[in-house]
Amino acid sequence: MNVLVVHAHPDPASFNHTLFETAVTALRAGGHTVETIDLYAEGFSAVMTAAERKAYHSPAPILDPQVARHAQLVRWANALVFVYPTWWAGLPAILKGWLDRVLVAGVAFDFHPRTHKVRPALRNARLILGISTYGSPRWFGFAMADAGRRTLLRALWLCCPRRTRRRWIAMHGIDGTSEAERTAFLHKVDRELRAL
């Protein structure tokens, strides 16, 4: 499969970044063609500009060459993999902004010309997979409603063909985990992505 891995963490020395590298290595070992977007490393701007907002409902909503390149990768991908820490129950702003700016009409969905209803356009997508770490213990994560997971596995999934599969690999209570638990989680990610 063509796999696009999108990563959002500001610190290349973080555990989350190690998860990202583990995922990419495992996917390549599994024989997949992998492209990556490391949002912080690329200096991606999360903020949709006024010009982009004005162009949003036009036939040409993409104005920035970096956004155009990312959109091309999204269209190419059969699997979209996201590796990020959950902050305030949701996506880090840089990743939320990536959805706002890159997944526009003509990429993730189309506006019906007459009724203006949104129609799915991620025709190549066969899998959405999220790998996320949570600071809070699991019960608190539930109370906090897991909005990031809902954004990717529901809102984004609505733009995919109906047979598109969804997978979520989560590590809860990251702040209090031991070295051994982290290593075990890395092994789990490696195992699951190799077998994809």
Partner: peptide
């Protein structure tokens, strides 16, 4: 509401200020 949630600029205000 964009993509089910706050625009990134507001989500980032939560991330950074709260």
């Amino acid at each position: 509401t964009w993509w089910g949630g706050q625009p990134a600029i507001l989500k980032g205000w939560f991330d950074r200020v709260w």
